[in-house]
Each structure stands twice: as structure tokens, then as C-alpha cells.
């Protein structure tokens, strides 16, 4: 703590011998003990994210190494939040189900409060979102993504070497976007399919996250755009997800009694078959024929074999 204050107050680089003289707790130590303690304290500050700089005041004698913390690199920049914004910040404290991330959020909010912002959750009492992190590899991948550490993971039983770029949470599951060193290309990984905690295989900050279009990469995780349509007969009021996605159409063939006909878009035939089966007699597919046949095959299996 005293080392942090000392370096923060310095306008120039301070040499180690000076630090030893002025910092409370250092001057009574033996030479060896001081070296050890100073190195440990300095590394600890850096690991907390305190930007301890190394350099020399004298361009003619660059060997005279000193240390300092630049105030503008250290301090949280001023941020002004209006009342709608502080209400949202207040709610953030209770979102995480994982204790580690909850602590990190609380400590980020404490810093905001220290900077004079007062998050106020009372106004949004009707909202109680939560985010889980139950994947066994989550903690190690999250940490590596935060400080840019290359990792080795076992992905569906296959060893992979990755440079994590960013993470996303979709529909209850975590994903990692990163560079696959073996394939020398960006890849998306589902964290639940990483079998064990990730192992670091390099130093933090040893690669750069490129300016790729992260949004576009995430959008590819969304269900593919429907590019084909199936004609489906649906009982009124049932299979609402299909109805919502579809549009009512006139059907030239016979329409089963008590059904309405919709054209429903889909991207993958196998997904549509599963979806249609799940609705049973509430949704009957009329065309294309191969989807109709696939649905009948699946239904026949369920009707017959689960005896």
C-alpha cells in the first residue's frame, strides 16, 4: 500500500535505493529481505492491474532504473451517469450466480461508488436477471480471456491450443471466440464442450486481440437465416412458434379439416423435422415431400418402438 502511494506521488522515476529509504516498512529490512519484499510487492501491484512503469530519468544513463505509477494510467476516468443509468448499475450486483464474478462486480461497483456514482437498484425492483457459469472450464477460460493468456484445452476429447479473444453468453451457454493455433484461424468454441480446466501455455498479454468484427462473429451463432419454406397445416391456436415465424397462405391441394395453412421458413431440414414432430398432430407438414416423409418416419418410430 505504501509502495503504491509512494510511486503514485512520484513525478519522476524513483530508484530502488530511494524507495528503500522512504517507504515505511522497507528501511529496517536486510539487503536480501528488502530485495525479496520489494520484488514481491511490485509484482503484486502489477498483478492487481496497477500500472507500475520501469524507466530512467536520465537518457544518458539508461541503466539507472527507477519506478513510477502514472496518475492518468492509474485513475478511473471520470464517468457521469444519469439516474436511469445508475438504476441499471445498481441491479448489476445481484446478476451473477458464480461467486467469483459476483465479487468482481461488487468490487467494480465499489470503485464507481468511490468515484462518486451511487448505483440505486430500488427503481428496477421488477427485474431479477441472473447469469450462471456452471461449465467446469468457465473460470480458467474467463481469466485467460481477461488477461490474454494463450491456453491449451481438451475440446470434445481433442487437444487444442487457443488465443482467447472474447466470450459470449447465449441461451444459457457460454461461448469463446479465439484463434486456433493449430488451424491458424479464428474459431468459436462452446465452453460446455471443453472437458477440463484450461492450461496456460504462455504469458498473459503475449498476443494481441485483432480488430475483427466480433459482432459479426457472434451473429453467426444465431440460427441461420431461413432460406427455404415448408407448407404446414396448423390447428388454430397451436404451434404458436411456427405460426409466428410463418405467413398464412392459400393451399392448392386438400387441407385437412380444422387446420389453417402457413408457409414456414427454415434453414436446416433436420431442425424443422424435429420441431414438427414435437407438435404432433397440431402441425402437419404438407410439402416438401421429403420433410413430410422424414416426419412420418420419426413418428412411426416413436409410436411403435417405445413400448
Amino acid at each position: 500500500m505504501n509502495l503504491a502511494i509512494c510511486l503514485l506521488m512520484a513525478r519522476r522515476f524513483i530508484e530502488k535505493t530511494q524507495i528503500r529509504q522512504v517507504v515505511e516498512g522497507y528501511h529496517d529490512l536486510s539487503d536480501a529481505a528488502f530485495e525479496r519484499t520489494f520484488e514481491r510487492d511490485k509484482d503484486e501491484l502489477r498483478s492487481m492491474g496497477v500500472p507500475v512503469e520501469t524507466g530512467s530519468n536520465n537518457p544518458l544513463f539508461p541503466d539507472e532504473v527507477g519506478y513510477r505509477i502514472r496518475r492518468k494510467d492509474f485513475e478511473l476516468p471520470a464517468i457521469d451517469f444519469d439516474s436511469a443509468e445508475t438504476a441499471a448499475l445498481g441491479l448489476a450486483a445481484t446478476v451473477w450466480e458464480s461467486a467469483t464474478q459476483e465479487e468482481q462486480t461488487v468490487s467494480a461497483l465499489a470503485k464507481l461508488r468511490a468515484a462518486g456514482v451511487d448505483p440505486d437498484p430500488a427503481r428496477l425492483s421488477g427485474l431479477a436477471p441472473s447469469i450462471g457459469a456452471r461449465e467446469p472450464a468457465f473460470a480458467t477460460i474467463w481469466a485467460a480471456t481477461g488477461d490474454h493468456t494463450p491456453i491449451r484445452v481438451s475440446y470434445r476429447g481433442q487437444p487444442r491450443q487457443l488465443e482467447p479473444w472474447a466470450m459470449t453468453y447465449r441461451r444459457g451457454a457460454w461461448y469463446l471466440l479465439g484463434r486456433d493455433r493449430d488451424r491458424e484461424a479464428p474459431r468459436m468454441f462452446k465452453v460446455a464442450r471443453v472437458d477440463a480446466p484450461a492450461q496456460a501455455i504462455g504469458k498473459a498479454g503475449s498476443y494481441r486481440v485483432p480488430d475483427v468484427d466480433l459482432d459479426a462473429a457472434w451473429r453467426r451463432l444465431e440460427p441461420r437465416q431461413a432460406d427455404t419454406e415448408a407448407i404446414v397445416a396448423i390447428r388454430p391456436g397451436r404451434a404458436v412458434e411456427l405460426v409466428r415465424r410463418g405467413r398464412p397462405v392459400e393451399h392448392v391441394g386438400t387441407v385437412p379439416a380444422g387446420y389453417e395453412v402457413y408457409a414456414v421458413g427454415y434453414a436446416r431440414a433436420a431442425d424443422l423435422v424435429g420441431e414438427l414432430c414435437a407438435h404432433g398432430a397440431d402441425a402437419l407438414v404438407l410439402s416438401p415431400l421429403r420433410i413430410r416423409q422424414a416426419v412420418i418416419t420419426e413418428l412411426t418410430a416413436v409410436a411403435g418402438s417405445l413400448a
Binding site: E75, W96, A108, A143
Partner: peptide
């Protein structure tokens, strides 16, 4: 003034806010 957010703090807070969003 407080120190800047660590990467972990910034990520945790932003994810929580996005969940609220």
C-alpha cells in the same frame, strides 16, 4: 480517485449489465 477497473471487474460488470438489458 479509485483505480481503473481490472479486466475481470470490467468484464463481470458489463456482462451483468447486459443481462439486465
Amino acid at each position: 480517485r479509485p483505480m481503473r477497473f481490472t479486466p475481470d471487474e470490467a468484464m463481470s460488470l458489463v456482462v451483468a449489465l447486459r443481462a439486465v438489458r
